[in-house]
């Protein structure tokens, strides 16, 4: 496997891993801190939203 092949593989793995980590972190913490936004699909589910107590159904 040459240098280009290794680089391509590393980039592909990095893309997949970073997207997965970003999605996990976003779900856990809310988008940049919770502002009680009703349009957030994680409303009342993510940790910062629960902590803030801003979101009321």
């Amino acid at each position: 496997m040459g240098a280009i092949e290794i680089a391509i593989t590393v980039v592909a793995v990095l893309i997949v891993v970073s997207v997965a980590i970003a999605a996990f972190v976003r779900k856990k913490q809310g988008k940049g801190g919770c502002s009680g936004c009703g349009e957030c699909p994680h409303a009342a589910k993510c940790q910062s939203c629960k902590a803030s107590g801003k979101y009321k159904k």
């Binding site: 496997m1 040459g2 280009i4 092949e5 391509i8 593989t9 592909a12």
Partner: peptide, 19 residues
């Protein structure tokens, strides 16, 4: 460009088809 650069067929497939 990848074929001309001698990149392995699978890596070309990953970039062109996969990505």
């Amino acid at each position: 460009a990848m074929a001309a650069g001698g990149v392995a067929e699978w890596a070309t497939g990953l970039v062109v088809d996969g990505m």
